[in-house]
Design a binder for these strands. Structure first.
Lengths: 335, 335
DNA sequence: AACTTTACCTGAATCGATTCAGCTGGGTTT
DNA sequence: AAACCCAGCTGAATCGATTCAGGTAAAGTT
């Protein structure tokens, strides 16, 4: 029932080899044949069987993207960037969201290896190095996204999270805040520790004394932010920090919700607030949110471009691409 | 270099047929063989070549999902729901975002047909019926998402948008509003016209006289909302509507931003505001947003489940699944 | 005129997993 | 003891696109 290259060949009155050539190197085929074949293809509504193609030629038209938090608009933007670039190359994205669950991560990696994807983009959560080495052994190009990893031997595209943390806290200090709390977690996520490290550096390098406290969360969702905010407000007032640096905007929006509920708006007068990611909703928040912008679309595009290049040239040398973060000042830090 | 079923067979000391049987119907193979084969697989790090499998057996382990607005958290949630369900079946999602561009829609549909996906989920934008019929001709199960279509002969999973529109406007009327503006567009998107139709019905059925005006937008993003809000505010004050029903939450958030900027907060006292989707950021907004909730995750899960069932049983009869929307009242309508 | 070159085309072999007809050897039935 | 059964296994044929050695005819060269 399905239409194969043989049907096209018959209809066009040529051999299957010629049809294949029309599809893959039309310049080596006479104009007349190209014509007849393309017409036959149209008439029959033929599309190549990608499985057969992949099997024989070993070329794949998909790239896998494993993301650790599908909820987070930041990753959605990264995926969008990648997808955008991919579609212009006729490549589709196999999307896998792991929700920070190492076992799901493993399932997807196996699935994508079965698929023999052309390349793999991954925002890793657990320890995936063993698995990733298998990808390399299978000759599948792999690029780490949102995670710098000079030692791993893989290319990566990320943002300098340490610098981002520093920017955020420097800004808070500049706005006159001295008792700063970093809100985020868990601490086995690299981005969290990096952002905190940047924050610490800024606090220590400040010309005045700055206290930096850590308020841990078990995840980085709006709900966790709400909860953390509620916890902070339960303290006696004089023990409140005068500024919060949230490890991402979801947390920040949650915090904000706690800090403006019940009619009293504590932000920014009593407590300044800054997030990370500059997600599209940060500017539409109750109090427009200051944040550290990551060029998310660009990260996705770049990662995809690199993975395709590496797939084309197996001897390429892994490279680390790091984008600078950017401070976006809005009302929540007292602008 | 890559490890094939033949290598596994050799290592385990059995034939390739037996290895295949271990993989696909282990109960027909002696325990001893199962053991030796699984051990060999582990040792070699073997994964099936999905291309060969697909070619011969015609089974696919991917489902395509074409979405018209990757920016919109609603669709992200739907995808997440589908993905969640998929991963429990060992199936991966091929993700395509069309950004409401019919030509990209076509590209993805061709790509997915080449891939011989097990099934297709699509939130359609343009007129895709011709293309979709090709999918059916190729025996690929197809489910429309977020679009009811009794006539098309395809299954669908959606929310009753008309009822949603009615709920929204009934609520506004109940809160004492009489000059309501519907903000949304473009009007070739079915959801928009349905929501408006519901709004009209509610206005006409009201016991008092209710004016319903339409403020068209060219898309449904936060930016369009901001622009529409600014346009409204430029009118002389007595021509302002006293309530806005935005066709989705992105628009509503944009409107809100216009209506609370410059220090004066017009919502809800002067102007009530309700959105649609109840996206996760609606509750974290400047003024927590009333909205019409769609069970987005559930829509995704259900759509995936249906498409798999239909893929398994080609004679199944198309069915329309319609979820009811739910009114979520928050501060923006004066609660 | 005999040759080489060029431009195109053909069709069989190939990729790796699945499938299925057929084989084997031990157990059961009569 | 002959006939039959059955669980378990084997290995060749198969899916459809690609590739490439080889073929053909027309054009070009000497």
């Amino acid at each position: 029932m399905p239409i194969s290259i043989r049907d096209v060949a018959e209809r066009a009155g040529v051999s299957v080899g010629t049809v294949s050539n029309v599809l893959n190197r039309p310049d080596e085929v006479s104009a007349d044949s190209v014509d007849r074949v393309t017409r036959a293809i149209d008439e029959l509504g033929y599309v190549r069987n990608d499985a057969a193609r992949k099997l024989r030629a070993g070329v794949s038209t998909t790239v896998g993207f494993v993301v650790l938090d599908g909820q987070n608009p930041f990753y959605n933007d990264v995926v969008r960037g990648a997808e955008d670039e991919a579609s212009s190359h006729g490549i589709a994205i196999l999307y896998g969201n792991t929700d920070e669950d190492p076992s799901r991560e493993k399932v997807y990696l196996d699935l994508f290896r079965e698929q023999q994807v052309r390349g793999l983009l991954i925002a890793p959560y657990g320890d995936v190095m063993t698995q990733l080495r298998r990808f390399r052994a299978s000759g599948i190009a792999t690029v780490l996204v949102d995670r710098f990893s000079a030692d791993s031997g893989f290319s990566s595209v990320s943002v300098d999270s340490v610098a981002g943390g520093r920017l955020a806290v420097e800004h808070l200090i500049e706005m006159g805040r001295r008792r700063i709390a970093f809100v985020g977690g868990p601490f086995d996520i690299r981005q969290v520790t990096d952002r905190l490290a940047g924050a610490r550096a800024a606090a220590e390098n400040a010309s005045t004394h700055v206290e930096l406290e850590v308020v841990p969360t078990s995840a980085m969702t709006v709900e966790d932010g709400v909860a953390a905010g509620a916890r902070l407000l339960m303290r006696p007032r004089r023990e409140w920090p005068d500024a919060l640096f949230a490890a991402n905007d979801l947390l920040a929006l949650g915090l904000l919700q706690s800090l403006v509920s019940g009619g009293r708006v504590l932000v920014p007068d009593e407590i300044a607030l800054i997030g990370f990611d500059d997600n599209p909703f940060a500017s539409a928040a109750a109090v427009p949110l200051s944040s550290i912008r990551q060029p998310s679309r660009m990260i996705g595009r770049t990662a995809l471009r690199i993975v395709l290049e590496e797939a084309a040239d197996p001897d390429s040398i892994p490279r680390q691409t790091v984008f600078p973060p950017e401070l976006i000042v809005r009302r929540s830090t007292g602008a």
